[in-house]
């Protein structure tokens, strides 16, 4: 019988996420995916940035690194190069990964380094109290768009695909079992895997925009017009393997 408790740090629980927040559902899907793949906790490194979703790393009993705002992919790139044998999973949010850390996202995708990046998209900066995110839908309100948002928002999956990511997928917290499968596939994929997870922020974002109860917000995700599932998959040279070729060349072995 699968037990989440085997994978989290019980002294850190219960987690700090708000009532009804979808992040806990992603955490569960992630732990089930890890269990499904039979990965050893010692061989997993989880790297996150700053924001609600990035607090996830504190709860998982593996090698965890909670970095600076927007930078988890850069830290993870260094770690993966140093230790290619580790499974490195990056946890980021829509603000962390698409705004302040957007540059790292496109370049990590371009390099096709073997990291699995889960981007939690809850459409808002939750931890700082509900400011505009690059994913906040037009016309919605936030603390910094008191008259409604006039900015178009990112399609994170199209962005990463265009930048060269070789596994691009989108899941939702409402479809948590397919999400678990997507995460498992992403981890197994050799190269840069990007999984955008549409999640919910009922307390901060939902309340201000009258988006309904936590359950209603979950169910609304089922009706998303964005494509879900595996959106793009390709093969290409993986960065750490390609660098092994550089080492061989520099050492005159090729």
């Amino acid at each position: 019988m699968f037990d989440y408790h085997e994978y989290f740090r019980s002294e850190m629980m219960p987690h700090m996420w708000c009532k009804g927040c979808g992040n806990g559902i992603v955490l569960k899907a992630l732990l089930r995916a890890i269990h499904r793949l039979g990965l050893s906790k010692d061989r997993i490194a989880m790297v996150s940035g700053i924001g609600c979703s990035s607090r996830l790393t504190g709860y998982v009993d593996c090698n965890t690194l909670h970095t600076t705002h927007g930078r988890p992919l850069a830290f993870a790139t260094g770690l993966k190069l140093a230790r290619p044998e580790l499974t490195v999973i990056v946890i980021t949010g829509d603000g962390d990964g698409l705004a302040i850390g957007g540059n790292h996202l496109i370049h990590t995708a371009r390099r096709n380094i073997d990291l699995t990046c889960l981007l939690f998209n809850n459409q808002i900066y939750g931890m700082t109290g509900g400011q505009l995110a690059p994913t906040t839908p037009e016309a919605l309100f936030s603390t910094t768009t008191p008259y409604g948002n006039i900015e178009p928002n990112f399609d994170a999956c199209r962005l990463v695909q265009a930048a060269g990511g070789t596994f691009v997928a989108r899941g939702t917290v409402y479809r948590a079992i397919p999400l678990e499968k997507l995460i498992a596939e992403g981890i197994q994929h050799k190269g840069f895997s990007f999984i955008e997870v549409l999640t919910t922020c009922p307390e901060i974002h939902g309340r201000r925009n009258k988006l309904g109860t936590p359950a209603e917000m979950l169910q609304a995700l089922a009706k998303t017009t964005l494509p879900t599932g595996v959106i793009h998959q390709a093969s290409g040279p993986e960065y750490t393997e390609a660098y092994d070729g550089i080492i061989a060349k520099a050492q005159g072995r090729t």
């Binding site: 790297v47 690194l65 830290f75 790139t77 260094g78 770690l79 993966k80 580790l86």
Partner: peptide, 10 residues
């Protein structure tokens, strides 16, 4: 950031 990540990798 990458430097810090690599250093944590030993």
């Amino acid at each position: 950031g990458a430097c810090i990540g690599a250093s944590l990798g030993g």
